[in-house]
Computed example of a mutant assay.
Amino acid sequence: MEEYTTNEEDQQEAARLQTRLRQQQQVSNDDVSSQEYQRLPNVSIDKGKHKYVLISAMTPSGERQHFVVSKKGAAYHRDAAEPFVEALERCGYKSIDIQGGGRIRFDPQNKTISVYGYSYGFGLADHALSKSVIVQDPRFHDYEVTWSNEGY
């Protein structure tokens, strides 16, 4: 697996995405009807070791949801975040916030998931919260899920 080092361009792109999301929070999203709303799964992780982001978003009814997202082949954390943010927007979510990132090692054969590290572009995610989101997903009820703020 090729390792990418966060550079100034990636940090600028991550900041641009965060700024766009903050601006959208200031604009009313009342034009999204509840018929357009589609609930997305809280956990979307690819097997293997990948960069991940913790995202929160508001449903049209005002419920705050957290999402743990990794994407195979994501060179940078924004590469994992952007497609999911776009899906959240299409599905009617509002007040979308990328709360940080790190790495996830997902091994379905051994039924283990490790959450650790940080993102230069989005900062350190609350890995304890990420673990909580994962263990609440019925697909992972019999997995050993661990987290640490160590590593990159």
Score class of each variant (00 low, 15 high):
Gln24Ile: 08
Glu2Pro: 14
Ala74Gly: 10
Leu124Ser: 09
Lys71Thr: 08
Phe140Leu: 03
Ile98Gln: 04
Asp107Ser: 08
Cys91Met: 00
Lys71Asn: 10
Thr59Leu: 11
Asp137His: 03
Phe122Leu: 06
Ala128Arg: 09
Arg20Thr: 10
Ser28Trp: 05
Ser130His: 00
Thr146Gly: 06
Ser56Asn: 09
Ser34Arg: 05
Glu63Cys: 12
Ser132Cys: 09
Asp46Val: 00
Glu63Asn: 12
Asn110Met: 09
Asp79Gln: 04
Tyr152Ile: 10
Glu86Trp: 00
Val43Arg: 03
Met58Phe: 06
Leu124Val: 10
Ala14Asp: 02
Phe106Thr: 04
Val69Glu: 05
His77Cys: 07
Gly62Leu: 08
Phe67Gln: 02
Asp30Gln: 09
Glu86Val: 05
Gln18Gly: 08
Asn29Glu: 11
Leu17Val: 11
Arg90Pro: 07
Ser70Asp: 08
Lys49Ser: 15
Tyr37Asp: 03
Pro60Arg: 03
Ile96Ser: 02
Ile45Ser: 10
His127Pro: 05
Lys131Gln: 14
Gln18Phe: 04
Gly151Gln: 04
Ala74Leu: 07
Leu124Asp: 09
Glu3Asn: 11
Met58Trp: 03
Glu86Gly: 11
Ile113Phe: 04
Thr19Val: 13
Leu21Lys: 02
Ala80Tyr: 03
Arg64Lys: 14
Val69Ala: 07
Ser130Cys: 13
Tyr76Phe: 15
Ser148Gly: 10
Tyr4Lys: 10
